[in-house]
């Protein structure tokens, strides 16, 4: 199988269509399982009471906000460097979902902060850099929709996305580099996580669900973008209908 074949939007369009249910269905199942474990199996936290249950959506949303941004920047860079149309479309498709997850992480963070810290918001390093991430997404989306010429819009978006990548390690390490109100990481790649079994399980299941959801929704959206931008694919779909 020649994978390069699928760099062409006309070939990728039907492939993406076949892949979507394989991500969407497990995502829906894992959301239900994750919430069940999070609300019915995971015990009440000794320090935070039940307020901690917000982390089952907050942490996965925050991770996805960061990861999708890096992915967006990589696709945007590939689209710019190799003039690859599909890569630029993927970047555009990722921007909406990334912005949505960053928005969720900010709002749920505020809902967690109010009862736990006593304030909805503080201008500390973690929160401020997360807000900047949200503005980077919004900037990318507005820049793309403001520029009429598609190739120029993609290039301008790519430039913004690549420069903005510097913000992602700042978010990730902000809790180590600065003395912030936001707590440090609970889960590290090399160390044992400092969180109880069912709590960790619920968070990881929700993370998997958010990942699968992101893949599915980004594929659905990129198919829409292909139809909007590529006249010949739209005609091909029409001919088959």
């Amino acid at each position: 199988m020649n994978l390069y074949k699928y760099a062409a939007p006309a070939n990728f369009y039907p492939l993406a269509g076949k892949l979507i249910p394989w991500f969407a269905v497990p995502a829906a199942i894992l959301f239900v399982v994750g919430l069940y474990v999070g609300f019915f199996i995971a015990p009440t936290d000794a320090q935070q009471g039940d307020a901690y249950r917000i982390i089952f959506i907050h942490v996965p949303a925050a991770w996805l906000g960061m990861f999708l941004y890096v992915l967006l920047a990589i696709y945007a860079a590939i689209g710019w460097a190799f003039n690859a149309r599909l890569a630029s479309m993927m970047a555009t498709s990722l921007s909406i979902t990334g912005a949505m997850f960053t928005f969720i992480s900010l709002v749920t963070g505020a809902f967690w902060g109010k009862p736990t810290w006593g304030t909805w918001w503080v201008w500390d390093a973690r929160l401020t850099s997360s807000l900047i991430l949200f503005f980077l997404y919004v900037g990318f989306i507005s820049l793309q929709s403001a520029i009429e010429d598609q190739r120029r819009a993609d290039r301008a978006g790519a430039l913004l996305a690549i420069v903005g990548v510097i913000n992602v390690p700042i978010i990730y390490f902000s809790v180590d580099w600065w003395n912030t109100l936001h707590q440090g990481a609970t889960i590290r790649i090399l160390n044992k996580p400092t969180i109880a079994g069912p709590m960790l399980a619920a968070m990881l299941i929700m993370l998997a669900a958010c990942w699968l959801y992101s893949i599915a929704i980004v594929l659905v959206r990129v198919r829409c973008i292909i139809l909007e931008r590529e006249q010949h694919v739209a005609q091909m779909v029409e001919a088959r209908a």
């Binding site: 959506i57 907050h58 967690w112």
Partner: peptide
Amino acid sequence: MGGYGFYVWGSY
């Protein structure tokens, strides 16, 4: 939610 209902359900 142990008194945190507004925050937990608000989030979700």
